[in-house]
């Protein structure tokens, strides 16, 4: 864990997170190189196992980019993802880790700026925390 280059794993919904990431790339916005992007068919596919594995393997933060509420192609995948994240945050707090290391971030498919902004905020938060 570098103090200045925290490692972030981003689980991106195929319908919103991935297009937002690609939009951010096409705009030439700055994203950290230590970002690992995992495309998933739905934000709701970001399992507890995936998130914990990422933290276990040395990620400083895990971000789940899913659709806004009411926009899920599969009706309530994003709601399930958010509930799961809230549950995991509770567990992290119990074992003495910063719950902010897991973040649920709803984005629109064409909001690359928002994507980059959320990642930048997370990096800043981790730097302060370190």
């Amino acid at each position: 864990m570098g103090r200045n280059n925290p490692k972030i794993v981003a689980f991106c919904c195929e319908e919103s997170g991935m297009p937002a990431y690609e939009h951010a790339l096409s705009l030439g916005l700055e994203l950290p190189d230590d970002l690992k992007v995992v495309a998933l068919p739905c934000g709701g596919k970001a399992e507890t196992g995936y998130i914990m594995k990422a933290l276990d393997e040395g990620a400083d933060a895990v971000m789940i980019f899913a659709c806004y509420e009411g926009n899920c192609k599969y009706v309530r995948g994003n709601i399930r993802a958010e509930k799961r994240v809230n549950y995991l945050k509770e567990r992290l707090e119990k074992i003495g880790l910063n719950p902010e290391r897991i973040a649920f971030c709803p984005v629109a498919p064409a909001s690359g700026v928002r994507f980059a902004e959320l990642v930048r905020q997370e990096v800043e938060m981790l730097r302060e925390d370190a």
Partner: peptide, 11 residues
């Protein structure tokens, strides 16, 4: 920063 992230796409 050169935007060289590791990306896993849906196969």
């Amino acid at each position: 920063m050169s935007n060289q992230q590791a990306v896993l796409r849906i196969p």
